[in-house]
Design a protein around this nucleic acid. Sequence first.
DNA 1: TAGTTTTAAGTTTTT
DNA 2: CTTAAAACTA
Length: 749
Amino acid sequence: MNEIPYYLQDLNPEQRDAVFHEGKPLLILAGAGSGKTRVVTTKIAYLIREKGVNPRSILAVTFTNKAAREMAERAAAIESAAAGAMLRTFHSFGAWFLRRNGEYAGLSSNFVIYDDDDMVTILGSIIEGKKKNELKLIAKQIARAKDYFFTPESAELSFINHSGEFRKIYAQYEEALRKTGNVDFGDLIKKPVEILRENPGAAERLHSRFRVVMVDEYQDANVAQFELLKAICSPETYLCVVGDDDQSIYRFRGAEVKNILEFPQRFGGADVIRLEKNYRSTAHILDIADSVVRHNAGRLGKKLSAERGTGTKPMLAFLSDQDSEARECAALIDNSVRTKKTSAYSDWAVLYRTNAQSLGFENEFLRRKIPYRIVGSLKFYEREEIKDALALLSFVVNTKDEVSFRRVINKPARGVGAAALERILSERAAADWDIEAACERSGALSATGISVKARAGVNTFIESINRARKILLAVESVKRDNSHCILKAAQGLSCCAAGLIEDSGIAKYHRARDEINGETRVANLQELVNNAALYEATPEGLADFLERIALDRAIEQQEDGEPRVTLITVHNTKGLEFHRVIMTGLEQGLFPRDDKEGDDLEEERRLFYVGATRAMDELYLTSCAYRRMFGQATPMRSSIFLEEADGSKLRIVGTPPYGFNPAALRHSAPKQAAPKETEGQSAAIKRKTSSDGRWQIGDRVFNEDYGYGEITAINEGNEGPVITVCYENGRRQRFLSRAQSSRFMKIKD
DNA sequence: TAGTTTTAAGTTTTT
DNA sequence: CTTAAAACTA
């Protein structure tokens, strides 16, 4: 080999092997930060440039839209022709396939995608007398069944829910869903597999289109996705999957780690390449992550080597409550950005286990004017007014859409009550399940059960839907007649969407709410309409718009170029990296969630591993003694992960909770319960006077209200050590050491 | 029956 | 503290 192309020169031997590999299927076992995205993107470029592979014949599948976009960007940066390759999530690929081949399964191309709430609506319409929570559970189980590729007839369905009733409901649900002409998330994977299996023609077309298939984050594939992968690949297809069993965090969604463990057997003796050099994090950070995940039993087991040197020790901060947590994070970030040249807001990420935790940080960051962005909060699309508007738009595309129709037919009130609604829907059978036609029939029949007022209301509704559709069809036909002259209305779909929202009365309905409650619903509707601007004002453009929203609920980030701190759930950080990471809320019950055991606890550990390995240079962990839950402060125990972590690699600040027993401080014995006897307590005090940042007599302290002071005594109380402080103003204060006052801090020596 | 007020219940994680 | 269900009023 005389010359190696420049873009391959920086790869290590294993990475290069992975890029050059051809022939048999390939499994790349790639640890965190080992450059797997780089391998995949480089491989795409290499195949196009050096091997003459047609970009259109390459399919790369990821699990999140963010990852798909980033991969596309990075591949195109090496080889611009890579823009022709298809980079999608599994679900978005499924939707793409169904829009073209749906007729094999009786689906027309204008379907919309139902979310979990829509599933619940359908279930509510087919079963009586169940509470919403029960319906939610059933919806979840049906989604789970589809993840496992179970049909209502599958014997294995009892694995999800043992009752015969569930089987019946699942079957009824499928029937009701079919009548709407729409699909749920699970169908986006399941239906393509069924079509490909039953229609050799469709399979052959797909096989001849895609010669190279790559899958990122393969450890998160569920059974249905595995089946889809098998159906996409013919014996001639080159298949390459990348994954890391330690980063499997979607078990709750049916992800099966065995997919990756058994890949070589399932795909005819595949080759395996391991990437075990970590180029992202410093050694101390990796040690912390590894020392926790090592407690898992079910793993392949690997040791990443840190290529970036030792670095600084991660910091573990024990704080009093979530308000103090938000303040300390803000202060830490602010201070770092102000004093260090190398630190910018965009280097920082604040990680949390649940979306709800973002609120406290948002408020504090707003107050202190720290610029931030939130990744992946889907609250916007859960708002009532947004769902209403989307339901209207969905009904324009597909008039069989029962869920959307139910939602908006009587909003604003048009006199169409439950009775009239059911009367109309009962006409569907005679109208080929088209609700618009059913409305006409029930009107023409002058049937009983529908008042004059209701009939007029239905007409008004249908008319406004039709006006919107006419606009879309008009634009479409103009476009078809003058294909050379691209008609591009200034606002694209926005105009039509805004028209419908106004015309249907939904805008007025919510405007009234705004005036009464001082909300901003109309502004939200406006934002939704703005987002439609990028789409064509045609039926197809509208379907695209709705699909984007269903599959990628990430709100468009305003790209103003201002560096911002990232607020993000741990799940959402997969595939990302940051110079400085704060993992927050490391408390038992929150992270790990509840008192999880066994496989569930192992998944939470992997989640910790994913979060910690996002950090390149600095890692901070926070744990609060109290957290507000249901509006009131609840005492919290620190996360078990903090005790599993290698304490010798941590800088601990603040007061550890009573009985905190990190791995490095343990003499032997795997797990010691918190000391309960007097003897244990005195041992705890002894540690408190050690040098690791705990309280000891003589420590100088500062309190925002009382000023400077000094610790004069540490006594044993019923609930642990009690600290006594004398302030310079003569005031004395006593508090539990584990319940350190939020207005109280130790002064560094 | 539609809309509001009172009371009870309950925080995963995502396509 | 927010949301869903129940109870209540016009």
